[in-house]
Design a binder for these strands. Structure first.
Lengths: 188, 188
DNA sequence: ACCATGACTGACTAATCACTCCACAAAGGT
DNA sequence: ACCTTTGTGGAGTGATTAGTCAGTCATGGT
């Protein structure tokens, strides 16, 4: 159950963190932009760190939800992987601030606030997908962790690029198709 | 001319920024760890922002210097690219804090403190290398900016991976060889 | 009508921050 | 010897910060 005010706080925090960084945005400013009293913020989140982590988890949750939209066990591995790939890139393009925030968070000392088991819990399903592809000899016989970071960073890079050139829908679709082929070619 | 104390300040700042983030480390702490008075820090750098940018430029400069070590016009394009690739990954492995700092900086609002022309000045030579590879039909006929972000993020990913598994020298070399082949296969 | 609960408020505080200021010292030119 | 420049120190300052706290208000149960 996330109340309206809580939503507003998260929304304002996201905007301001992206604009000015974590320590660069005072809690007072977040409260102000959320149209909420200072105390209210601390009513919902005991500390600023807790707010940051909550925001991260909320965004990650939404991305994960979206990522597997439309995948079906009847489809081939390649088709499913491409759906996941496209979902992620489309989500990133539609949620630039969220995506940027996640990147910012991942390359910051705040990442250590997330328990390692929480991280591996999120990562595990993806590693398993890659593992099965290796077993089926679809992918090269390489460590799945290696393929995972390459896949991840490929997506990061593509997001950056799509963000920079801001393509039309048709062009974007083409770009996703083409870059998926590059990725596929690299891993198979 | 960079004095000893200045060096110590940069060294301490790097360590602390990586550990606690930009705003998370007070200038007073940097001065203390550098074995220098508070005022001395501000004698060399008018503001904290100026210190951060100076640190970034210094690190980037060192990386750029190292990157092209050993390249020769007599060698083939592929050989030279591989040298650059390996130099970058080796530098990153030997300078984890520096590499992490650059990533942190790049995904932070501080990036906007670097003038766009400064950035494109650094990027241009790399784009030109890619352009020539496209002209010679070595690489696929794709936008060079696209290949650039993919190349960049591939290297970021590999650095992450190498950092995580901390391989022996021989294994690291093998990893660099193999991952370069992946990259090459993707772009040609 | 009365009360209990919990969301919500905003003035407040203790601590911390970036940065200043001024004193002094060493170096080097004349 | 004298002056100027440059480097260095560290106490000090005003602004800002995360977080507190004492209390108000709306809601719903009885």
């Amino acid at each position: 159950m996330v109340s309206d005010k809580q939503q507003e706080i998260l929304k304002a925090a996201l905007r301001l963190f992206v604009e000015s960084g974590f320590h660069g945005t005072p809690t007072s400013r977040i409260a102000k932009e959320a149209g909420v009293a200072n105390g209210t913020l601390f009513h919902y989140y005991k500390t600023k760190d807790e707010l940051i982590v909550a925001l991260y988890s909320s965004i990650k949750g939404k991305l994960n939800e979206r990522m597997h939209n439309g995948t079906q066990s009847e489809l081939s591995f390649k088709e499913n992987l491409k759906i996941i790939y496209a979902n992620t890139l489309n989500w990133a393009a539609e949620h630039k601030e969220e995506f940027y925030f996640v990147q910012q968070f991942n390359t910051s000392p705040f990442l250590s606030l997330i328990a390692p088991e929480e991280i591996s819990r999120q990562t595990k399903p993806h590693l398993e997908i890659l593992e099965s592809a290796v077993r089926q000899k679809i992918f090269k016989n390489l460590p799945v962790e290696l393929m995972f970071v390459l896949l991840n960073n490929h997506i990061y890079g593509m997001s950056q690029y799509i963000h920079n050139i801001a393509p039309e829908d048709a062009q974007k679709k083409q770009l996703i198709d083409d870059s998926f082929d590059l990725l596929w070619r690299m891993l198979t």
